[in-house]
């Protein structure tokens, strides 16, 4: 496997839309097993998510080291993949080290390949610089946001491979909460535990929040055109301070100041604990 091939394949990680850096120094190597050193998620054009993994293996007896790369449409445990499932493996390496060079927004992998000391820099073209400070997973709605500065402001590099599959964007222009045909895209239960992760970036015509649970953790959201305040539609958000002024039980009541309706309409708490305008 030539170095240029390695680089070409590894540069696929530049399209990562979420990235979990497992270690930013040399990973803790567990002998005789694959140690993940980078795993992430790539959003391809058909909205399908591909999971990618870069792993390292060291044989405790022979001291042989290997690097392996895998991408899969199915979420998998990066550490447990069998060798035969990796897309490519660079065998017979020595002294593999891996680190993220935060200032340059790159990953740096060094190793000895056939007696030569080599280093590969993989630039993360779509990953914002500001996100390197935390060792966490970052979701696509953050990376698509206008507040987060990308490495090249305004630029999103597309994957080279695209699919012909149709989109799975949610919602129609005619959907209305009052008709009961809007789709939930982010949800919390009565104990304010998130029961559905934020997926509202998949709403074709935007999304809107509803008020009623009084959760500081967030609001329930639906796909669709925001018609808050209109008759039979959810009331408009008035803000967090207003939620905190009342106990959670008082949030969903006609006297609530946490939401408002179009002039002339009244607030009402419906059976789904949503403040609507009637």
């Amino acid at each position: 496997m030539s170095l240029s091939s390695i680089i070409a394949i590894l540069s696929l990680v530049t399209q990562l839309s979420t990235l979990k850096i497992l270690k930013d120094k040399n990973p803790l190597i567990i002998p005789n097993s694959w140690t993940p050193i980078l795993e992430g998620k790539v959003d391809i054009a058909d909205r399908k998510k591909y999971y990618v993994c870069l792993s390292y293996f060291k044989d405790s007896q022979t001291k042989e080291e290997k690097l392996a790369y895998l991408s899969s449409p199915v979420r998998f445990n990066c550490a447990n993949k069998l060798e035969k499932n990796f897309e490519f493996i660079i065998p017979k390496l020595n002294n593999v080290t891996f680190k993220i060079v935060k200032e340059e927004n790159t990953a740096e992998i060094s190793f000895i390949n056939k007696g030569k000391f080599e280093q590969v820099y993989i630039p993360f073209l779509n990953i914002p610089l500001s996100l390197w400070s935390k060792d966490e997973t970052f979701d696509s709605e953050v990376l698509a946001s206008e507040k987060v500065k990308r490495r090249f402001p305004g630029v999103l590099v597309l994957p080279q491979e695209k699919s012909d599959r149709k989109n799975e964007l949610m919602g129609e222009l005619t959907d209305r909460y009052s008709k009961g045909n809007t789709k939930v895209c982010h949800d919390f239960n009565s104990k304010c535990v998130e029961t559905m992760a934020f997926e509202c970036d998949q709403c074709r015509y935007g999304w809107f929040s509803v008020v009623g649970r009084g959760c500081e953790e967030g609001t329930r959201k639906f796909c669709g055109v925001d018609r808050c305040g209109h008759k039979n539609e959810p009331a408009c958000q008035r803000g967090f301070i207003h939620k905190r002024l009342k106990s959670k039980n008082d949030v969903c009541s006609p006297e609530s100041s946490t939401a408002y309706c179009k002039n002339g309409l009244q607030l009402m708490c419906n059976s789904q604990k949503v403040l609507v305008c009637i």
């Binding site: 060094s110 080599e118 280093q119």
Partner: peptide, 8 residues
């Protein structure tokens, strides 16, 4: 390194 490549 003997070979230092900025990802090509």
């Amino acid at each position: 390194p003997d070979t230092k490549v900025q990802a090509g």
